[in-house]
């Protein structure tokens, strides 16, 4: 049996589900951020697979842009986490409740 589009979509959506579960279940902000990266990557895999099996270039280029934006997003997000840690001395989401009350 040769590998078709649906196998790739299956793997990519399973990766997305794993990342989603991680975002829901982890408490550490850094771990949540890693799971977010996993979800972005799963979407990338789906786009590349569709692009390959439809013979179109658009998906590949879109993944290129996604990777660029994700790199920028990681830099900004980690800077925010560092600023937060400087102020609160914690990165656990349960203790970051400055907007409560």
């Amino acid at each position: 049996m040769t590998i078709g589009l649906e196998q790739y979509i299956f793997v990519s959506s399973l990766l997305f589900a794993i990342g989603f579960g991680g975002v829901l279940l982890r408490k550490n902000t850094l771990a949540i951020y890693m799971c977010l990266e996993l979800m972005l990557n799963a979407a990338n895999l789906a786009l590349v697979a569709f692009s390959r099996y439809h013979g179109a270039m658009g998906g590949n280029l879109f993944v290129f842009f996604i990777i660029t934006v994700a790199a920028a997003e990681v830099a900004v997000g980690l800077a925010i986490i560092v600023a937060l840690f400087r102020k609160k001395q914690t990165v656990v989401v349960g203790e970051l409740n400055a907007l409560k009350n």
């Binding site: 990766l15 794993i18 990342g19 991680g22 279940l25 982890r26 771990a31 890693m34 799971c35 996993l38």
Partner: peptide, 9 residues
């Protein structure tokens, strides 16, 4: 990929 993603989580 799936196993290491699960390990990340």
């Amino acid at each position: 990929a799936l196993a290491s993603a699960a390990a990340v989580v």
